[in-house]
């Protein structure tokens, strides 16, 4: 078996809050194979962004990170700041939700892309500018040569996200981590960006981690999905298996709560209660208080993420039992 591109092993993150440590991530283990697209879904505070900020060492210094991150099978803990900067961009590129605030407002977009090209590929100024134009062409920005001299505020949100993707591609990364890349965009522009991400992946063979709260987006362009709740992965499965046959009650609940434009109109089945505060997690399984399938054992022990089939894992004592959400509906 080949060495995976990135492997996270039992990653934990604690933040200092008022003199105490509050655990945001409770041991996340995740493997990204070369060229695959993984979707990471969860609600706010579930730890989906923190996982990747921790893995790429982008969290503030006050955060306490534990666990292992292996890149090509080698741990990255020992890397210096400079070495780590080489990993980011060159091996792992990140794009975020709001493209306009990720770009520097006082520099032309061409300069910003060229800077990234020079940094990661060592081109001279002229070659970097030519490469910047080529990258803008590649992300299908019309009249790329003229757009090089535009400032971010002169471009639309969708075009700025294309610029961010061009910058991410500048280092020819093996993995692109896209954190809610279309959340700030309109639905027709979102469709364009999702198609672009899929196209770039086909052409370059890079792996993709798509972080999103939107199950529809994740279903659209990923091969495998991990569902997070309260700082843990609760279910992981190939995309079709997850949506056709969800095993964890939380995943089942999310799907039942999702309105759709197709299919029959039905009353939504809401998940009762709310996401727990990370500083005051319930005992046992964090989802137990909201779970219709919970039994007494669910509040005394924390279920581990175990393989339930060759390629899927579920953290639930009650996985495989009747789907209680349908009964509730």
């Amino acid at each position: 078996m080949t060495v995976p591109l990135i492997e996270l092993k039992d990653l934990t993150v604690d933040f200092p809050v008022g003199g105490n440590w509050v655990r945001a991530l409770h041991g996340v283990s995740l493997t990204i194979r070369r060229g695959e697209a993984l979707g990471l879904v969860g609600e706010s505070g579930s730890g989906k962004s923190v996982t990747w900020l921790a893995a790429t060492k982008l969290l503030p210094a006050k955060a306490r990170i534990d666990g292992e991150v292996l890149l090509d099978g080698k741990p990255i803990q020992g890397l210096t700041r400079d070495q780590m900067a080489g990993v980011r961009g060159k091996r792992v590129a990140l794009i975020f939700q709001d493209p306009t605030s990720s770009l520097n407002p006082v520099h032309r977009v061409g300069t910003q892309i060229a800077e990234s090209v020079r940094l990661h590929r060592g081109f001279d100024a002229a070659a970097a500018r030519a490469e910047a134009k080529r990258l803008l062409d590649r992300v299908h920005i019309p009249s790329a040569a003229r757009r090089l001299d535009d400032y971010p505020h002169e471009l639309s949100g969708g075009t700025n996200q294309r610029v961010m993707i061009a910058m991410a591609l500048a280092g020819e990364p093996d993995l692109l981590v896209a954190d809610e890349p279309t959340t700030a965009l309109d639905v027709t522009i979102q469709a364009q960006i999702l198609d672009l991400l899929a196209e770039m992946r086909r052409e370059t063979g890079m792996a993709l981690v798509l972080i999103s709260h939107d199950l529809g987006i994740v279903a659209d362009i990923t091969d495998r999905v991990a569902v997070m709740y309260a700082g843990r992965i609760v279910e992981e499965a190939p995309v079709d298996a997850l949506f056709d046959d969800p095993r964890h009650p939380y995943t089942q609940g999310l799907l039942a709560a999702l309105p759709d434009v197709a299919g029959p109109r039905r009353r939504l089945t809401a998940i009762p209660g709310q996401v727990p505060n990370p500083a005051a997690l319930p005992p046992g399984c964090a989802f137990a208080p909201r779970c219709p399938a919970a039994i007494s054992g669910c509040v005394t022990a924390i279920p581990s993420l175990d393989a339930v089939a060759a390629d899927r894992r579920t953290a639930c004592f009650r996985a495989g039992h009747a789907t209680p959400w349908e009964i509730a509906a």
Partner: peptide, 24 residues
């Protein structure tokens, strides 16, 4: 038609979209 077709949902995954070009 473009607006409805652009919505990604688990039910319609894998279907090709007729993406609308350009910004409004």
């Amino acid at each position: 038609q473009a607006l409805v077709g652009a919505i990604p949902t688990p039910r319609t995954r894998g279907r090709a979209r007729a993406a609308l070009q350009g910004d409004p």
